[in-house]
Amino acid sequence: MAKYLVKRVGFILLSLFFIVTITFFLMQAAPGGPFTSERQLPPEIEQQLNEQYGLDDPLHVQYIDYLKDIAVWDFGPSFKYPAQSVNDIINRSVPYSLILGAEAIFIALSIGVLLGVVAALKHNKFGDYTAMVVAVLGISVPNFIMAALLQYVFAMQMDALPVARFDSFAHTLLPAVALATTPLAFIARLMRSSMLEVLSSDYIKTAKSKGLSHRVVTYKHALRNAIMPVISYLGPLVVAILTGSFVIEKIFAIPGLGNEFVESITNRDYTVIMGTTVFFSVLLLISILIVDLIYGLIDPRIKVAGKGGGK
Protein backbone atom coordinates (compact mmCIF):
# COMPACT_ATOMS: atom_id res chain seq x y z
CA MET A 1 0.00 0.00 0.00
CA ALA A 2 2.74 2.46 1.01
CA LYS A 3 4.67 1.54 -2.11
CA TYR A 4 1.60 2.18 -4.22
CA LEU A 5 1.04 5.59 -2.62
CA VAL A 6 4.67 6.61 -3.15
CA LYS A 7 4.36 5.61 -6.79
CA ARG A 8 1.15 7.56 -7.22
CA VAL A 9 2.61 10.66 -5.55
CA GLY A 10 5.58 10.35 -7.90
CA PHE A 11 3.21 10.38 -10.85
CA ILE A 12 1.39 13.38 -9.39
CA LEU A 13 4.67 15.32 -9.19
CA LEU A 14 5.58 14.33 -12.73
CA SER A 15 2.17 15.44 -14.02
CA LEU A 16 2.53 18.71 -12.16
CA PHE A 17 5.89 19.33 -13.78
CA PHE A 18 4.36 18.92 -17.23
CA ILE A 19 1.36 21.07 -16.34
CA VAL A 20 3.60 23.86 -15.06
CA THR A 21 5.84 23.70 -18.09
CA ILE A 22 3.06 23.69 -20.65
CA THR A 23 1.08 26.44 -18.92
CA PHE A 24 4.18 28.59 -18.51
CA PHE A 25 5.11 28.56 -22.18
CA LEU A 26 1.55 28.76 -23.49
CA MET A 27 0.93 31.77 -21.29
CA GLN A 28 4.08 33.47 -22.53
CA ALA A 29 3.09 32.69 -26.10
CA ALA A 30 -0.18 34.59 -25.74
CA PRO A 31 0.08 38.18 -27.00
CA GLY A 32 0.23 41.01 -24.46
CA GLY A 33 1.68 41.07 -20.99
CA PRO A 34 0.75 42.07 -17.47
CA PHE A 35 1.55 45.73 -18.11
CA THR A 36 -0.19 46.07 -21.44
CA SER A 37 -3.08 48.45 -21.14
CA GLU A 38 -4.99 50.91 -23.27
CA ARG A 39 -3.06 53.78 -21.79
CA GLN A 40 0.55 53.38 -22.97
CA LEU A 41 3.00 53.36 -20.09
CA PRO A 42 6.13 55.43 -20.65
CA PRO A 43 8.82 53.05 -21.92
CA GLU A 44 11.11 53.79 -18.99
CA ILE A 45 8.48 52.80 -16.45
CA GLU A 46 7.62 49.63 -18.33
CA GLN A 47 11.31 48.85 -18.49
CA GLN A 48 11.58 49.33 -14.75
CA LEU A 49 8.56 47.14 -14.01
CA ASN A 50 9.88 44.39 -16.24
CA GLU A 51 13.22 44.54 -14.44
CA GLN A 52 11.59 44.44 -11.05
CA TYR A 53 9.60 41.32 -11.83
CA GLY A 54 12.39 39.69 -13.80
CA LEU A 55 10.41 39.83 -17.05
CA ASP A 56 13.44 41.11 -18.96
CA ASP A 57 15.37 37.93 -18.28
CA PRO A 58 15.52 35.35 -21.07
CA LEU A 59 12.55 32.98 -20.98
CA HIS A 60 14.49 29.95 -19.81
CA VAL A 61 15.90 31.89 -16.86
CA GLN A 62 12.39 33.01 -15.91
CA TYR A 63 11.21 29.42 -16.22
CA ILE A 64 13.93 28.00 -14.01
CA ASP A 65 13.42 30.76 -11.43
CA TYR A 66 9.74 29.91 -11.39
CA LEU A 67 10.36 26.21 -10.94
CA LYS A 68 12.64 26.96 -7.97
CA ASP A 69 9.99 29.10 -6.29
CA ILE A 70 7.17 26.72 -6.95
CA ALA A 71 9.11 23.83 -5.47
CA VAL A 72 8.77 25.54 -2.08
CA TRP A 73 5.09 26.43 -2.75
CA ASP A 74 5.89 30.12 -3.34
CA PHE A 75 3.84 31.48 -6.20
CA GLY A 76 5.37 34.98 -6.08
CA PRO A 77 3.69 38.39 -6.04
CA SER A 78 0.67 39.34 -8.08
CA PHE A 79 1.42 41.74 -10.94
CA LYS A 80 -1.97 43.35 -10.82
CA TYR A 81 -2.26 43.78 -7.06
CA PRO A 82 1.34 44.43 -6.04
CA ALA A 83 0.56 44.43 -2.33
CA GLN A 84 -0.60 40.79 -2.41
CA SER A 85 1.24 37.59 -3.05
CA VAL A 86 -0.43 34.85 -5.06
CA ASN A 87 -0.33 32.66 -1.96
CA ASP A 88 -2.41 35.29 -0.15
CA ILE A 89 -4.96 35.36 -2.93
CA ILE A 90 -5.27 31.57 -2.97
CA ASN A 91 -5.42 31.26 0.81
CA ARG A 92 -8.11 33.91 0.96
CA SER A 93 -10.35 32.61 -1.80
CA VAL A 94 -9.96 28.83 -1.50
CA PRO A 95 -12.21 28.36 1.55
CA TYR A 96 -15.16 29.87 -0.33
CA SER A 97 -14.65 27.63 -3.33
CA LEU A 98 -14.07 24.56 -1.22
CA ILE A 99 -17.21 25.05 0.86
CA LEU A 100 -19.27 25.76 -2.23
CA GLY A 101 -17.79 22.78 -4.10
CA ALA A 102 -18.14 20.35 -1.21
CA GLU A 103 -21.75 21.35 -0.67
CA ALA A 104 -22.53 20.99 -4.36
CA ILE A 105 -20.87 17.56 -4.57
CA PHE A 106 -22.74 16.44 -1.48
CA ILE A 107 -26.08 17.56 -2.93
CA ALA A 108 -25.35 16.07 -6.35
CA LEU A 109 -24.24 12.74 -4.93
CA SER A 110 -26.92 12.18 -2.32
CA ILE A 111 -29.91 13.34 -4.32
CA GLY A 112 -28.57 12.02 -7.62
CA VAL A 113 -28.01 8.52 -6.26
CA LEU A 114 -31.40 8.57 -4.53
CA LEU A 115 -33.23 9.66 -7.68
CA GLY A 116 -31.43 7.04 -9.75
CA VAL A 117 -32.25 4.23 -7.33
CA VAL A 118 -35.90 5.28 -7.09
CA ALA A 119 -36.12 5.46 -10.87
CA ALA A 120 -34.63 1.98 -11.25
CA LEU A 121 -36.86 0.42 -8.60
CA LYS A 122 -39.96 2.01 -10.13
CA HIS A 123 -38.79 1.15 -13.63
CA ASN A 124 -41.28 2.37 -16.25
CA LYS A 125 -43.66 3.64 -13.59
CA PHE A 126 -44.55 7.10 -12.37
CA GLY A 127 -41.52 7.42 -10.06
CA ASP A 128 -39.16 6.56 -12.91
CA TYR A 129 -40.68 9.09 -15.30
CA THR A 130 -40.68 11.85 -12.66
CA ALA A 131 -37.04 11.24 -11.77
CA MET A 132 -35.98 11.17 -15.40
CA VAL A 133 -37.88 14.35 -16.27
CA VAL A 134 -36.01 16.04 -13.41
CA ALA A 135 -32.76 14.58 -14.73
CA VAL A 136 -33.28 15.70 -18.32
CA LEU A 137 -34.20 19.20 -17.13
CA GLY A 138 -31.12 19.28 -14.93
CA ILE A 139 -28.82 18.29 -17.77
CA SER A 140 -30.36 20.68 -20.30
CA VAL A 141 -30.61 23.81 -18.18
CA PRO A 142 -27.21 25.54 -17.87
CA ASN A 143 -26.17 26.43 -14.35
CA PHE A 144 -26.21 30.20 -14.89
CA ILE A 145 -29.86 30.05 -15.91
CA MET A 146 -30.57 27.80 -12.97
CA ALA A 147 -28.78 30.34 -10.75
CA ALA A 148 -30.85 33.26 -12.03
CA LEU A 149 -34.03 31.22 -11.66
CA LEU A 150 -33.20 30.21 -8.11
CA GLN A 151 -32.35 33.82 -7.21
CA TYR A 152 -35.61 35.02 -8.71
CA VAL A 153 -37.82 32.43 -7.03
CA PHE A 154 -36.21 31.96 -3.63
CA ALA A 155 -34.61 35.34 -3.05
CA MET A 156 -36.75 37.86 -4.91
CA GLN A 157 -40.25 36.33 -4.87
CA MET A 158 -40.24 34.30 -1.68
CA ASP A 159 -37.59 36.30 0.13
CA ALA A 160 -36.52 33.09 1.83
CA LEU A 161 -32.81 33.05 1.11
CA PRO A 162 -30.21 35.75 0.50
CA VAL A 163 -29.78 36.66 -3.15
CA ALA A 164 -25.98 36.81 -3.20
CA ARG A 165 -22.73 37.00 -1.20
CA PHE A 166 -21.33 34.29 1.03
CA ASP A 167 -21.66 35.20 4.70
CA SER A 168 -23.68 32.42 6.32
CA PHE A 169 -24.90 28.90 5.66
CA ALA A 170 -28.12 30.28 4.20
CA HIS A 171 -26.00 32.18 1.68
CA THR A 172 -24.38 28.98 0.47
CA LEU A 173 -27.59 27.15 -0.38
CA LEU A 174 -28.64 28.76 -3.65
CA PRO A 175 -25.19 28.73 -5.30
CA ALA A 176 -24.57 25.16 -4.17
CA VAL A 177 -27.89 23.99 -5.60
CA ALA A 178 -27.27 25.85 -8.86
CA LEU A 179 -23.83 24.32 -9.14
CA ALA A 180 -25.09 20.83 -8.26
CA THR A 181 -28.00 20.63 -10.71
CA THR A 182 -26.19 19.33 -13.78
CA PRO A 183 -23.97 16.78 -12.04
CA LEU A 184 -26.98 15.69 -9.97
CA ALA A 185 -28.97 14.97 -13.10
CA PHE A 186 -26.02 13.18 -14.64
CA ILE A 187 -25.49 11.02 -11.57
CA ALA A 188 -29.20 10.18 -11.44
CA ARG A 189 -29.13 8.88 -15.01
CA LEU A 190 -25.88 7.02 -14.44
CA MET A 191 -27.21 5.45 -11.27
CA ARG A 192 -30.50 4.47 -12.88
CA SER A 193 -28.97 2.62 -15.79
CA SER A 194 -26.36 0.90 -13.68
CA MET A 195 -28.93 -0.06 -11.05
CA LEU A 196 -31.21 -1.51 -13.73
CA GLU A 197 -28.34 -3.55 -15.06
CA VAL A 198 -27.39 -4.83 -11.62
CA LEU A 199 -31.00 -5.62 -10.67
CA SER A 200 -31.34 -7.92 -13.65
CA SER A 201 -28.05 -9.68 -12.96
CA ASP A 202 -27.75 -13.27 -11.86
CA TYR A 203 -26.39 -12.59 -8.40
CA ILE A 204 -29.48 -10.55 -7.54
CA LYS A 205 -31.53 -13.60 -8.47
CA THR A 206 -29.25 -15.64 -6.22
CA ALA A 207 -29.81 -13.18 -3.39
CA LYS A 208 -33.58 -13.41 -3.88
CA SER A 209 -33.43 -17.20 -4.02
CA LYS A 210 -31.87 -17.14 -0.54
CA GLY A 211 -35.08 -15.63 0.78
CA LEU A 212 -33.61 -12.22 1.53
CA SER A 213 -36.12 -9.42 1.72
CA HIS A 214 -36.52 -6.89 -1.04
CA ARG A 215 -34.86 -4.23 1.11
CA VAL A 216 -31.76 -6.31 1.84
CA VAL A 217 -31.43 -7.34 -1.80
CA THR A 218 -31.65 -3.74 -2.96
CA TYR A 219 -29.39 -2.08 -0.44
CA LYS A 220 -26.88 -4.76 0.49
CA HIS A 221 -26.47 -6.51 -2.84
CA ALA A 222 -27.48 -4.14 -5.61
CA LEU A 223 -26.47 -0.68 -4.43
CA ARG A 224 -22.83 -1.38 -3.77
CA ASN A 225 -22.32 -2.85 -7.21
CA ALA A 226 -24.41 -0.26 -8.96
CA ILE A 227 -22.58 2.72 -7.47
CA MET A 228 -19.28 1.95 -9.19
CA PRO A 229 -19.87 4.11 -12.30
CA VAL A 230 -20.83 7.01 -10.04
CA ILE A 231 -17.59 6.65 -8.10
CA SER A 232 -15.55 6.77 -11.28
CA TYR A 233 -17.47 9.88 -12.31
CA LEU A 234 -16.46 11.56 -9.03
CA GLY A 235 -12.96 12.42 -10.29
CA PRO A 236 -14.07 14.44 -13.31
CA LEU A 237 -16.96 15.79 -11.22
CA VAL A 238 -14.65 17.35 -8.65
CA VAL A 239 -12.75 19.09 -11.44
CA ALA A 240 -15.88 20.24 -13.22
CA ILE A 241 -17.29 21.68 -10.02
CA LEU A 242 -14.07 23.42 -8.98
CA THR A 243 -13.26 24.95 -12.34
CA GLY A 244 -16.85 25.42 -13.37
CA SER A 245 -17.78 27.33 -10.29
CA PHE A 246 -16.51 30.69 -11.53
CA VAL A 247 -19.79 31.44 -13.33
CA ILE A 248 -21.72 30.72 -10.17
CA GLU A 249 -19.19 32.65 -8.10
CA LYS A 250 -19.63 35.60 -10.41
CA ILE A 251 -23.44 35.50 -10.30
CA PHE A 252 -23.59 35.17 -6.52
CA ALA A 253 -20.68 37.57 -5.91
CA ILE A 254 -18.64 34.97 -4.10
CA PRO A 255 -14.93 35.85 -3.79
CA GLY A 256 -13.83 32.32 -4.65
CA LEU A 257 -10.88 30.90 -6.52
CA GLY A 258 -12.73 30.36 -9.80
CA ASN A 259 -13.31 34.08 -9.99
CA GLU A 260 -9.63 34.86 -9.42
CA PHE A 261 -8.67 32.29 -12.02
CA VAL A 262 -10.72 33.89 -14.79
CA GLU A 263 -9.79 37.43 -13.85
CA SER A 264 -6.10 36.60 -13.79
CA ILE A 265 -6.29 35.44 -17.39
CA THR A 266 -7.95 38.62 -18.64
CA ASN A 267 -5.38 40.60 -16.65
CA ARG A 268 -2.40 38.59 -18.00
CA ASP A 269 -1.45 38.36 -14.36
CA TYR A 270 1.23 35.73 -15.01
CA THR A 271 1.91 34.65 -11.46
CA VAL A 272 -1.77 34.36 -10.55
CA ILE A 273 -2.51 32.34 -13.69
CA MET A 274 0.30 29.97 -12.84
CA GLY A 275 -0.58 29.83 -9.16
CA THR A 276 -4.23 29.05 -9.64
CA THR A 277 -3.50 26.54 -12.39
CA VAL A 278 -1.01 24.68 -10.25
CA PHE A 279 -3.35 24.78 -7.30
CA PHE A 280 -6.29 23.42 -9.32
CA SER A 281 -4.06 20.73 -10.77
CA VAL A 282 -2.93 19.60 -7.34
CA LEU A 283 -6.56 19.40 -6.19
CA LEU A 284 -7.52 17.46 -9.28
CA LEU A 285 -4.67 14.98 -9.07
CA ILE A 286 -5.31 14.35 -5.39
CA SER A 287 -9.04 13.90 -5.92
CA ILE A 288 -8.36 11.35 -8.67
CA LEU A 289 -6.05 9.49 -6.31
CA ILE A 290 -8.74 9.48 -3.62
CA VAL A 291 -11.35 8.23 -6.09
CA ASP A 292 -9.02 5.37 -7.08
CA LEU A 293 -8.54 4.47 -3.43
CA ILE A 294 -12.31 4.48 -2.79
CA TYR A 295 -12.80 2.34 -5.89
CA GLY A 296 -10.44 -0.27 -4.52
CA LEU A 297 -12.28 -0.23 -1.19
CA ILE A 298 -15.70 -0.81 -2.74
CA ASP A 299 -14.81 -3.32 -5.42
CA PRO A 300 -12.49 -6.08 -4.23
CA ARG A 301 -11.71 -7.03 -7.82
CA ILE A 302 -9.78 -3.81 -8.23
CA LYS A 303 -6.57 -4.24 -6.39
CA VAL A 304 -5.17 -0.89 -5.36
CA ALA A 305 -1.97 -2.25 -3.99
CA GLY A 306 -0.10 -5.47 -4.62
CA LYS A 307 -1.66 -7.09 -1.55
CA GLY A 308 -3.79 -10.23 -1.37
CA GLY A 309 -5.83 -11.62 -4.22
CA GLY A 310 -6.03 -14.44 -6.69
CA LYS A 311 -3.53 -16.92 -5.41
Binding site: D202, Y203, T206, K208, S209, G211, L212
Partner: peptide
Protein backbone atom coordinates in the same frame (compact mmCIF):
# COMPACT_ATOMS: atom_id res chain seq x y z
CA UNK B 1 -36.79 -19.57 -0.34
CA UNK B 2 -33.33 -20.57 0.76
CA UNK B 3 -34.73 -22.50 3.69
CA UNK B 4 -37.08 -25.11 2.21
CA UNK B 5 -36.26 -24.72 -1.47
CA UNK B 6 -33.03 -23.40 -2.88
CA UNK B 7 -31.64 -22.92 -6.29
CA UNK B 8 -28.38 -23.20 -8.17
CA UNK B 9 -27.99 -21.19 -11.33
CA UNK B 10 -26.36 -21.76 -14.64
CA UNK B 11 -23.42 -19.41 -14.70
CA UNK B 12 -21.27 -19.49 -11.57
CA UNK B 13 -19.22 -16.59 -12.93
CA UNK B 14 -22.14 -14.19 -12.60
CA UNK B 15 -24.36 -15.72 -9.96
CA UNK B 16 -22.23 -14.72 -6.98
CA UNK B 17 -22.12 -11.13 -5.80
CA UNK B 18 -18.65 -9.82 -6.78
CA UNK B 19 -18.40 -7.31 -3.93
CA UNK B 20 -19.22 -9.66 -1.07
CA UNK B 21 -17.05 -12.43 0.39
CA UNK B 22 -18.28 -15.95 -0.25
CA UNK B 23 -18.51 -16.41 3.50
CA UNK B 24 -20.94 -13.55 3.90
CA UNK B 25 -23.03 -14.81 1.02
CA UNK B 26 -23.32 -18.16 2.78
CA UNK B 27 -23.98 -16.62 6.20
CA UNK B 28 -26.82 -14.42 5.00
CA UNK B 29 -29.38 -17.18 4.74
Amino acid sequence: RGKEISMIFQDPMTSLNPTMTVGRQISES
